[in-house]
Amino acid sequence: MPKFLTSINAISWYFLFPVIFIHFFVVMFPSVLSLLLCLTDWNGFGRINYVGLENFQELFRDRVFKKAVKHNIIWTVMFLTIPVIVALIIAYLLTGIKRGQLFYRLVYFFPYILASIVNCLIWRYIFHPRHGLGGWFENQGIDFLAKSPFAMKETALYAVAWVDMWHFWGFLVIIYLTGMYQVDDSLYEAADIEGATKFQKFRYITLPMIRPIFVLSLIIIIIWSVPTFDYVYILTMGGPAYSSEVVANHLYSQAFQRMNVGYASTIGVMMFFYVGIIVGFFAILRRMGWEV
């Protein structure tokens, strides 16, 4: 047997082969197929007709797609601020707790391990106009939450995002906490000698020291916000009147309800490029010497 076939490098590839093989057929091949399908009018079953860039032209005329993109941007901004700020504060406060910290970590992390359908049903019930808080307040003679925020077009997107954030922020607490525990104690001791306040220690020691983890969390949030789907699908189906429609929901509707698989592939390709740009942006920052 030739020596290169038994070298350490070759053996590594043998072990990697099954994963690469599966990845090729499950991820790569459908992705490439999707790139081709966006140039067709395929309905998912029959003849495939080449339509050139017609789907892309349609995309820019599609008012629902534009609305969905806007909602995805709002969604991303919300996730980049509210859960991040809350998780940073809570994680920092938790570092000061010596006894019972595990209990808090469990409580904060618990929603993250629940299935999305469970989280959604809990909150749908809480906001139910008859059985939830609205009904309870009504019985007390108070007109508060009489209408479910999921059912009002002004609040639906924010209400769904709230539920998703409630499930997500505990995850951020855990990763920030892990980062904070890696900060060298001597830095804090030096700051104490200099008379630094708690906020100053957080601002000038903790935050810079956990920057790699912090930036990683931002990248995760931005990338995960693009295909966000389940919470919107379960709670509002993108309604009322597309007020909570996000891009992945629009893709699903086009592919599986309207049977416009070619057009849905175009939406998928746009999502792919968007994620590519985000990843490329952070790659450039890294090349410029940023610790990301």
């Binding site: 139910h128 106009p129 008859r130 209408k147 479910s148 999921f150 059912a151 009002m152 309604g239 009322p240």
Partner: peptide, 12 residues
């Protein structure tokens, strides 16, 4: 009202 219509399911 419309919002309650959007909120009620089969059992409700």
């Amino acid at each position: 009202d419309l919002e309650t219509y959007y909120s009620l399911d089969w059992d409700d």
